[in-house]
């Protein structure tokens, strides 16, 4: 009797592990149930994105709706796409027009890599202040909205670069800089 129970238990356990592994492995077999909740196309999160203050001296944090995505990396992509997109009405972007996100990934250590198209350098207007704002709008947008990310490494066309416009060192991952951010006056 006890042996029979043990055999049945082991059998159930084996089945459960097999099913579990199949589901974890990704490719879903024909017996797997359909995905429970496909993300709603209208679902959004509120993310903080950074634009130039009217005097051009600092970054203005702005709460904006960004498409909800599953996981840190996918959400990071959505946030960056929104940060790189042309600025909303009444705001000025600190990112050169035409800059595209080529890739985004996050390491186990909490370092995010943001790979940008060459416009970030080629179309940059220059000036240390503008360059600081460009670099830290991206670094802050990632770190402010993704708590898992501590530091951000910028890449241009997939490569590490010294600077994007001749001044600010981006060879190493950067941490967020709040001194460039102007908090909204209460």
């Amino acid at each position: 009797m006890q042996i029979a129970v043990l055999v049945v238990t082991l059998g159930l356990l084996g089945w459960a592990v097999t099913v579990g592994l199949e589901r974890l492995a990704g490719p879903v077999s024909d017996v797997a149930p359909p995905p429970a909740e496909p993300p709603q196309p209208t679902a959004h999160i509120t993310a903080t994105l950074f634009y130039a203050t009217p005097d051009g001296m600092q970054l203005l944090p702005l709460r904006r709706e960004v498409a909800l995505a599953d996981g840190v990396v996918a959400q990071g992509r959505q946030i960056l796409v929104a940060q790189l997109a042309p600025s909303p009405e009444g705001q000025r972007s600190v990112i050169p027009a035409g800059t595209q996100l080529r890739a985004f990934y996050v390491t186990d250590r909490g370092d995010a890599f943001v790979d940008l198209s060459r416009e970030i350098s080629a179309a940059h207007p220059g000036g240390t202040l503008n360059e600081l704002l460009t670099v830290y709008a991206i670094v802050n947008a990632v770190t402010a909205n993704l708590p898992a990310v501590q530091r951000v490494q910028l890449l241009v066309d997939g490569m590490e670069v010294d600077t994007i416009a001749g001044h600010v060192d981006v060879r190493r991952p950067l941490t967020k800089d709040t001194t460039l951010v102007r908090e909204a006056t209460p």
Binding site: A52, G56, M57, G127, L129, L174
Partner: peptide
């Protein structure tokens, strides 16, 4: 020696920078 640029046309004047060390 450098010259600066800003998105705001009214921004003017000289600035001096010295190095900010990161954690590394």
């Amino acid at each position: 020696l450098h010259a600066n640029a800003s998105l705001s046309p009214s921004m003017a004047g000289a600035e001096v920078y010295h190095l900010q060390l990161d954690s590394e």
